[in-house]
Design a protein around this nucleic acid. Structure first.
Lengths: 248, 248
DNA sequence: CGGTTAAATATGTAGGAACATTGGGATATA
DNA sequence: TATATCCCAATGTTCCTACATATTTAACCG
């Protein structure tokens, strides 16, 4: 458990970091607090400005940005409140496997977890935007329901994250990243394809060699578009359908 | 060809619409122009402000928003330029098959087109939200590149649209819908799966029976969420990968 | 007591000004 | 000619002020 420490409402006028960025960061920390996550009103603009010894404009620069990110909602005459993060808004379009399953009320099981450090091959290096041959953490997980595994995941994590390989990977992956490594998955670039099962995959997923698998390759990035995880997923097509709601 | 009309650089100070919104709209129109789409520099802030008779702050309010939408990129000491729209950013999330192919500079071919009226079975009726047994227009198209077909589409159209079956379906489908039937495809719910090729599909797509196909089922709706088209697509997995960029 | 009105409160809009920082081009120097 | 330097131009940051507009609250009156 983290030590609960009150947030210091102050900024440094002389460290060269733009004030509005400092305020932005301050607010980001603030709205992480459970009391705010439930839609609490933020301190009013003028108050914040006075507290921090800056102008209201600067406060608004920060809140503007956060409003654009849809973290805040402002209402004239009322105030600025934190957007209630429902599950569906949070992962508006995509979800991690755990969450996907969990939200459907399905209990999933990790059948195998293998974590190791390997050298990034050309494909992984290109995806994570690192040099070929650099050491990266590789995790392979065989997952599914109690009636048997139906997906095999292989993940490669960007060294920047700082994962050691000793983490408890039976926990939700993105929970680990967000909570312990302050890394927020935000964007996912995906490629989906159908492939015949290799002998190894067929064995793992208990299907016949050559039977169709859904192959889902995705790159998960943080809000700054920096790669976090390169993930390869092999799904038994008879037990998994990929669903998307796309709005343009 | 459209009549090329110069954009009027002015705002109305007395119509109640916030100036920054007017500027935003103005810039949106401006950056639609081909010369800007290629990354041209926008008029400088002070100039714009002077031209429009408003303050630089107000101009920045507008450009800030557009920058957040990633339509503009600002660079200190240089200026503000329009983001070059790459293919993937443009059809940010999805595109019709024609657009997909066309935008990649690939010429596609219709190998077969079969149009007929059939009774909606349970699946089609449920998707289009009509009564089972109602007559719907069914279109089956085998498409691909000059080296051979690689996808078989089966579409069912909602009777509301008013398609007769006599249309020239060698044209772009969504062009027909938008132009002649004032029907704008807007939302697409998709399901993706991998299936083994049936004998019929194997024959059409020139693959072995049982080899993996990417099966993409989608429901295209209008902006009011009313179903337009229920579409089943069977892709040769060796020549097609489904790509998505998902932002949350 | 209920409904109307007015005041207090919060954000929204708009303007002005000053100085900082960055990038690029012009100029001067070796 | 090549390189270093300086200056200018453009956006970035930050402050100030004033008034507009939407919401809620409180006061008021029939």
């Amino acid at each position: 458990m983290q030590k609960e420490r009150p947030i210091e409402f102050k900024v440094d006028h002389h460290n060269g970091i733009p004030l509005h960025l400092q305020v932005e960061q301050l607010l980001r920390t603030l709205i992480e607090k459970p009391e705010y996550k439930e839609g609490k009103l933020l301190p009013k603009e003028v108050e914040l400005a006075k507290m921090l010894g800056i102008s209201r404009n600067t406060v608004r620069q920060a809140t503007n940005k956060l409003e654009n990110e849809k973290l805040l909602v402002r209402k004239k005459g009322v105030g600025t409140r934190v957007v209630k993060q429902t599950l569906s808004t949070k992962l508006s379009n995509w979800a991690s496997f755990s969450e996907e399953m969990h939200s459907k009320g399905v209990e999933f099981v990790n059948y195998q977890i293998n974590v190791s450090w390997t050298e990034a091959d050309q494909e992984v290096a290109a995806a994570l935007q690192i040099e070929e041959g650099r050491e990266v953490l590789r995790m392979e997980r065989l997952r599914g329901l109690d009636k048997g595994p139906f997906v095999n995941f292989i993940s490669f994590f960007h060294p920047r994250i700082g994962l050691t390989g000793k983490e408890d990977f039976s926990r939700h992956l993105y929970e680990i990243l967000e909570r312990d490594y302050a890394t927020i998955p935000s964007v996912s670039k995906e490629q989906i394809n159908a492939i015949p099962a290799t002998r190894k995959l067929a064995e793992l997923l208990d299907v016949k060699t050559g039977s169709p698998l859904l192959f889902r390759r995705r790159l998960v990035c943080d809000p700054g578009d920096r790669p976090i995880e390169y993930n390869l997923g092999y799904y038994r097509a008879d037990s998994f359908t990929y669903e998307i709601d796309i709005k343009r």
